[in-house]
Design a protein around this nucleic acid. Structure first.
Lengths: 152, 152
DNA sequence: TGGGACAGCATGGGATATCATGGGATTTTG
DNA sequence: CAAAATCCCATGATATCCCATGCTGTCCCA
């Protein structure tokens, strides 16, 4: 499988101001507009205290997968639709590339002053900075352990 | 899959200037541009105090492997994305072939004045010069030991 | 084969554009 | 009319671009 579109990579620092705004990194904005997205889709992660953000490509992909299921007869359909689709907001950046995060999302991710944007191929995540640092350290440690075991 | 592209070989010396810039060796730049890379992708090694650098080929390979997994529903996805993708920066050389290294990467590799570029087939690494000399000696010693074991 | 000219590459430094961020003004809504 | 959301401009920091210079390896010719 090839990479459909340009992937989100790199980690950026950002800040949440008093008005609840964050500036989406320019590199991500470029990718988003290349996908023909009017802005950024943002959804609270159902695993982590973080926000998942993505463009048209991943939204379409998710929507297509759900569309393939029967909306009346599939039990898994509702859960997925409720968790992923219904909780997704579209946020349109202003001319400086900033979006205002709804209070519910700020609370979900426990965002304070310093936030962190982490590229994850098809999506990127928004984290409270300190929380992410801890998570990254753990992820790297697990990768190191896998390497030491000789697994690929 | 056959050898897709020209391998990175040879070791080069370079220097880190006051602005945090290094000049990517011309031989490597040639290989990178042949891959259609807008620049060089650089990621802190999760094993060594060094930086892994590579072109479009290896990035696509990694991104494609991750893109094959569902970004919302796959547990194995996250560690690799966090360690490899989120920590990878794209650095575009100026017309003289130089890139500016982010401070976090300089710190990770403990880079000082003299740096060292070491070709590793699909990627090349950037090391603090003295540190690399020690590592190289150890690697050669281990190879020698393996050779000796093989004969006995 | 040695010396000299040349081209490509690496390095230093300064000017310029882009980006992120803070704060204020204006409009909308309840 | 008050409160909140939106728009817009100003500023500082950062990254990008560009030119100048010195070095080194290569080529050519005597």
């Amino acid at each position: 499988m090839t990479v459909p579109v340009q992937p989100f990579i790199t980690t950026f620092q950002g800040s949440l101001d008093a008005k609840g705004r964050v500036c989406i990194p320019a590199a991500y904005r470029t990718i988003l507009t290349a996908q023909g997205t009017p802005g950024a889709y943002i959804c609270p992660s159902f695993i982590d205290p973080a926000l998942d953000s993505f463009g048209q490509s991943l939204l379409d992909e998710t929507a297509a997968r759900l569309a393939a299921q029967d909306p009346f007869l599939s039990p898994s359909f509702d859960d997925e639709a409720t968790t992923l689709i219904a909780r997704t907001h579209i946020l349109v950046p202003d001319e400086n590339g900033r979006v205002v995060l709804p209070a519910a999302l700020i609370e979900h991710a426990g965002l304070k002053d310093k936030v962190l944007f982490a590229g994850k191929v098809k999506k990127f995540q928004i984290w409270e900075a300190e929380r992410y640092a801890a998570l990254e350290a753990e992820a790297v440690a697990r990768m190191r352990a896998r390497y030491a075991e000789g697994r690929s």
